[in-house]
Design a binder for these strands. Structure first.
Length: 886
DNA sequence: TTATTATGACGCT
DNA sequence: AAGCGTCATG
């Protein structure tokens, strides 16, 4: 049986995998030549046990330093090791220098054939064509070989370097000639990398990606390995199964366990049918083939990454416990992401289309594995927009669940696409309504249109032969299908609408009943002109006009409208007890980033494109088809409209926040800021004094057990007798701690409750208070996982918690500028607490409150509660874009 | 399961 | 096609 047979030479490829040797270390050594030749490792996340090693140089490896060690361990094995810390920016690791170094390498390695960037420091090359050409010129004398090629390793041949040279020059078999030629090219490329970039790398040369990858790892550093076809059976016979690409994880483990396989050779002896029965047709066939050294996975022609992502974990004590902290870090991530996107746009002319936010969170203060959730929406460029949208996504996640604290967050921008240069602002589509008051105030020019150009937009339209926008809109109007009115303010960049003027209001009608799908100037424009602002996306189309029907909602992705719609959705899902709120009630809309964004002139103008009246105004209810004026539209979103900021506590609150910096001194009194009356208590005084360090939720909501521990002497100042009533007393103080992470004593208490098996609780429970109720509500979804006995569980947990929290570095090292000395007193009526108050509280407390509210509703209005829950569930599991407002 | 952490690509549903 | 899971690696 001919196992390795190729019908014709054309199918035979020459593929190389090239991998940089301990890349980050090399980058650091190149940056700091003093490190060359010395034992070096690159560490990340320094403060805890010397940081985690992510790259170890060969000198250090020789001294027994392993990659899984922490910095401290490495020092033990190798006292004179040089530990270099990964650069940081925005409070997180910043891998820019490594990415750039990787790009440098790719630019060299992509010279001789198709090149695929496989990771920051690896590429695959398809050298088939180049090797075919080179075959004619392979030296016949081994001394004429490139020095680097002479050092090649050829698998299956005597593992002796000098023999490799003669192998290379004396091939007669086509497949081997091809490999030999490719090896010469690879040697030259590696040499080029060494000379030009001053990095060493290792390479594998074979007929496909899998074998090349396997080979590149066999002789390191700074060497190359060839895998002739004939070497495969011998190689695989001894090769552990897990060494094969893609078999290093669960699939490989299942093959080992279920079939008792150890080596790749073992896999080869499993019948195809068996593999396909176990793992499906595709995977089965794939296994069958790779076990024979066959792999037709092509080398893709791609030297740039397909997405940009950044993430940060908040382990142990650093876990984020409230939304302000979450927002802070979302912004830090957005800062980095935005920078990388801008760079990509500049260098490669690419623009991302999709923003993805991922969150890991715990629903209980246990050490159980966290839940991971991701949400996405079209991306709008700019730090503020990314921040706003990402925060909206994250917030939606946290509202949908009973998040206790957040242990990691990530943002990524995907669907990178090259875009035509010509773009136009949505404002192109506005014109003045005759007879209506125009309020072209100062700063009328859109501010957010860095990359847009009205003139070009116009041109583009004209080229389309649309006969100009105005005509088209008018036509649509006649059909009663679309209304977008407004007038360009000449060429001056002035528009009828600006958003910042608090005095002059917009009168333009921007409502729309129905957007004609087949033909609309907007659609045409969006199809023609894509730009940094992502292309349009129809979020939902309701159908016919009229009362009670779904409403048309067109959202131009990449404008404010996306986040607005998003927030509307988030609100719908997160406010069980509050149907029918307006946007102004949503604190998410009041946060500094969001508001800053919405006040922005361009942003508001772009907002016009979102003609919608959705779940914003009604939840689970039918709503009337309404035409909104721009004024109303903006007003609905908490813009500076007719509402008096002074008269509006929430408004005042966010204004205050908007003006102050991150490390505000908390100057404004709580009453001023929160718009509520502070009710000084012994506790709040203590908190203000800066001595209290810790809030203890000893009891449950409604019970009124509050304790504050004096940080100076650890003494408990109070532990009961305070009621959860009245307004939030300490808003300013509470905000001060927003970047801090508490490890409240309550953690332990809460954990214990969570750990109690359901049955125990039920039998124990005699008092039916809110607290027990909320506990109950939370446990109902979790109880199934509790199996062990209570005692063991609690003891275990205590020990673990102690270990975890005691050794952690201080939270403020990581969480930035909020220097805080005070404890907090939370006083509020949990039944009436408003959303903005809620937002300032630790997530854990939010969760408690939501649970309590839910429970109360269940008691008082069981039917409504059930209905609501159902609706919420439906909303939360439906993909965002498919949600419809009814 | 719990301090690896940060980043990618891709397949499945 | 949104969102999750798997695999890999400095």
């Amino acid at each position: 049986m001919a196992r390795y047979q190729f019908s014709d030479h054309a199918e035979l490829r020459a593929v190389s995998h090239i991998d940089m040797d301990c890349f980050y270390v090399q980058v650091e050594q190149r940056r700091n030549p003093e490190l060359k030749g010395k034992p070096t490792a690159v560490v990340q996340y320094n403060p805890w046990k010397g940081g985690g090693l992510i790259a170890v140089g060969y000198e250090a490896r020789a001294r027994g330093v392993k990659k899984q060690m922490r910095g401290d361990d490495a020092r033990e094995h190798c006292p004179d090791i040089n530990l270099v810390t990964v650069p940081t920016a925005h409070g997180k690791a910043d891998l820019t220098i490594y990415r750039e170094a990787g790009a440098e390498v790719v630019s060299i390695l992509s010279r001789k054939g198709r090149c695929e960037r496989a990771s920051i420091d690896e590429v695959y090359l398809d050298l088939t064509e180049a090797a075919k050409e080179r075959m004619a010129h392979v030296p016949t004398n081994r001394d004429d070989l490139h020095a680097e090629a002479q050092k090649s390793h050829v698998l299956g041949v005597t593992p002796n370097v000098s023999d490799a040279s003669s192998w290379l020059v004396s091939r007669t078999e086509y497949s081997e000639q091809l490999l030999a030629a490719a090896a010469l090219i690879v040697a030259e490329l590696r040499e080029a990398v060494r000379m030009e970039a001053r990095f060493s790398c290792s390479a594998g040369v074979a007929h496909n990606k899998m074998l090349a990858k396997l080979a590149s790892n066999m002789h390191k550093p700074a060497q190359q390995t060839l895998v002739p076809l004939a070497a495969v059976p011998g190689l695989f016979e001894e090769l552990p199964l897990k060494k094969l690409r893609q078999l290093g994880g669960k699939l490989g483990a299942s093959l080992e366990n279920q079939l008792g396989l150890n080596t790749a050779g073992d896999l080869m002896r499993v019948p195809l049918e068996r593999l396909q029965d176990m793992h499906g047709k595709n995977v089965g066939m794939w296994l069958f083939r790779i076990s024979r050294g066959l792999d037709d996975d092509p080398v893709n022609d791609r030297v740039l990454p397909k997405s940009h992502g950044c993430s940060k974990t908040f382990p142990g004590r650093n876990a984020l416990a409230d939304l302000p902290a979450v927002r802070h870090w979302v912004r830090q991530l957005a800062l980095e992401l935005d920078q990388r996107l801008e760079t990509d746009a500049e260098q490669n002319g690419r623009f991302a289309r999709l923003l993805v936010a991922s969150v890991s969170y715990h629903t209980e203060p246990t050490l159980a594995s966290p839940h991971g959730v991701s949400k996405s929406c079209p991306i709008a460029y700019g730090v503020d927009r990314i921040t706003a949208d990402a925060f909206g996504l994250v917030r939606r996640v946290l509202s949908d669940c009973q998040a206790f604290y957040v242990t990691s967050m990530g943002l990524s921008a995907t669907n990178l696409q090259a875009t035509p240069e010509k773009t136009a602002s949505i404002t192109t589509f506005l014109r003045k309504v005759p007879g209506k008051q125009s309020a072209a105030s100062d700063g009328g020019a859109p501010t957010g249109s860095e990359t847009t150009d009205r003139g070009e937009g116009e041109t583009a339209l004209d080229e389309e032969g649309n006969g100009g926008l105005r005509g088209q809109v008018a036509a649509d109007e006649k059909e009663g299908t679309a209304q977008i009115e407004g007038e360009r303010g000449g060429g001056s960049g002035e528009y009828a609408e600006t958003s910042t003027g608090g005095e002059a209001r917009r009168k333009t009608e921007v409502g729309a009943r129905k957007v004609k799908r087949q033909r609309s100037p907007l659609r045409d424009w969006l199809a023609a002109a894509s730009g940094p602002r992502p292309a349009s996306k129809v979020i939902s189309t309701g159908g016919s006009e009229g009362k009670g029907k779904g409403l048309e909602r067109e959202v131009l992705a990449g404008t404010a409208t996306q986040s607005d719609a998003l927030k509307a959705e988030g609100r719908a899902a997160s406010e069980p007890a509050e149907c029918g709120r307006t946007g102004a009630d949503d604190p998410a809309l009041q946060s500094e980033e969001l508001r800053g964004d919405e006040i922005d002139g361009q942003h508001a103008l772009e907002g016009v494109s979102c003609v919608e009246r959705g779940p914003d105004s009604t939840v689970g209810e039918e709503c009337e088809d309404v035409q909104l004026t721009l004024e109303e539209w903006i007003g609905d979103r908490g813009g500076t409209d007719s509402r008096s900021a002074a008269a509006d506590p929430e408004h005042a609150s966010c204004e205050g926040r908007g003006r102050t910096s991150e490390n505000e001194k908390g100057a404004a009194s709580s009453a001023e800021v929160a718009g509520v009356t502070a009710e000084p208590t012994g506790l709040s005084d203590l908190a203000k004094s800066g001595h209290a360090d810790r809030l203890d939720l000893g009891g449950e909501l409604g019970e009124g057990n509050v304790a504050i521990e004096d940080r100076n002497n650890g003494e408990e100042k109070a532990d009961s007798g305070f009621e959860w009533k009245g307004a939030l007393a300490e808003t300013a103080t509470a905000r001060q701690v927003r970047n801090r992470v508490e490890a409240p004593k309550s953690l332990e208490a809460l954990w214990q409750k969570a750990a109690v098996p359901k049955t125990d609780v039920q039998s124990e429970r005699t008092v039916e208070d809110q607290a027990g109720a909320s506990r109950e509500g939370r446990r109902s979804t979790q109880s199934k996982t509790r199996k062990r006995s209570l005692d063991g569980h609690v003891a275990d947990a205590k020990e673990k918690l102690q270990k975890l929290w005691s050794k952690a570095p201080s939270a403020k090292d990581e969480t930035g500028p909020a220097e805080v000395g005070s404890g907090i007193t939370y006083e509020f009526d949990w039944q009436e607490v408003d959303q903005s108050t809620l937002d300032e509280l630790p997530l854990a407390i939010q969760a408690e409150i939501r649970a309590a509210q839910r429970l109360q509703m269940q008691r008082q209005q069981p039917k409504a509660a059930k209905k609501l829950e159902k609706a919420q569930h439906a909303q939360s599991i439906k993909p965002f874009f498919q949600r419809k407002s009814r």
